[in-house]
Design a protein around this nucleic acid. Sequence first.
RNA 1: GCGGGCGUAGCUCAGCUGGUUAGAGCACCUGAUUGUGGUUCAGGGGGCCGUGGGUUCAAAUCCCAUCGCUCGCCCCA
Length: 421
Amino acid sequence: MEKLQPVRGTHDILPDEHEQRRFITNQIADLASCYGYNEIATPIFEFTEVFQRTLGDTSDIVSKEMYTFEDRSGESITLRPENTAGVARALISNGLTQSLPLKFFYSGPMFRYERPQKGRLRQFHQVGVELLGVQETLGDIEIISLGAESLSKLGLLEKTRLEVNSLGDKESRLNYREALVGYLSQHSKSLSEDSLRRLSSNPMRILDSKEDSDKEILRNAPNISEFLNEESASFFAKVCAGLDKLGIVFEINQQLVRGLDYYCHTAFEFVTDELGSQGTVLAGGRYNDLVEMMGGVPTSGIGWAAGIERLASLTHFTSKKQRPISVIPIGDNALEKMLPIISSLRKSGFTIDLGFRGNLSKRMKRANLLNSCYAIIIGDDEIAKSLAVFRNLDTGDQHEVLLNQLHAELTRLLPNSGIKN
RNA sequence: GCGGGCGUAGCUCAGCUGGUUAGAGCACCUGAUUGUGGUUCAGGGGGCCGUGGGUUCAAAUCCCAUCGCUCGCCCCA
């Protein structure tokens, strides 16, 4: 509660910034809608087990990044660190497995207890999609394509590169894991402290270590591709072929390992070099075991999430807002006369600002400050003649318009304003 | 959890080898302009110099602690 600051790692989103974020969200939501994805919203907190059971005890999220607390009835509650587990839970809770396949889009805040830095917050926001009940490679291809198009629509595709990898099915992964542990154990003396710890808990995560000493050892480590069984290998090959067919450029990164336990087969990340070490902008993968892990019927799934703050910091945005029209009544009579007219203009969809106080000069200043395009000025002289002074604030030209012609005049001058439907 | 940088006006910052009443630009308010904005001019309000302690005749300035912000590591969106 020191000095009325927001909690560390959280920020107020003021109107200018919010407009950009809403724009980004809408762009992706519209695109997802074209792909047939429907918006879903799950609670921003869940019982802790929802995340604990699915993300994996050894994942960083569960081991040190969860916002967990006890509520008044003693239940352990966790603010969602990501939304895939919540969507999977909702699928089960609502018996939606009857109507597979399902395509979901979501957006909203996520929470992770981390040290904030550039592109990383404790409360951040994601948009994401989940495709449930599709085990065909067509699902992987559609999801990655939707990710690529989302970035493209925001003009960010050329700022990122797509990396993909296959983690294979369970059998392939176990075989690989064994081989990897065998290899790394021979070099355990030279491994970094963190990697050494992961050797027993989560050895695959050592693959994306950034320690030079680890990288050196990893250079000769076995590759996952050599351990994919026939089914997994052909699955991955089909995904890659599909991406090629769609003209989606990607590179295979065998070190790419997603941090969460529930991933299998396809894993992918769109990364940029423009955000320091937080380069991942949009990332996801396949999670065929997740729903079953939560106690539902086996249901395959694939999806991705993108960080809105990261997208926003890569995007140059200019406001798309309508410039307002300032109505400036002088005196109580004029105000009374204009109130119903203002109300009617607003109902027609025009953006009207009625400065709340001040003389003509003050109100003109406000009109200028708001970047209004026109000022409609009316005083006793004008009332007597049932008209208003209509001033173009860019040119300074002004002319008189009958009050009953105001709507027509604005419609003529601002054909793109007004209610669309 | 670990390391670096920084906390002075609403914002961006100057001042810091200690020395009157702490400054600038932008923003804000008032007036020139009581029926006309942007430009200009004149004036004005605003600061526990992050907080606590220490050194000193004297601290925004030096030292320590603490809190906050920020950047990086780990990891992730």
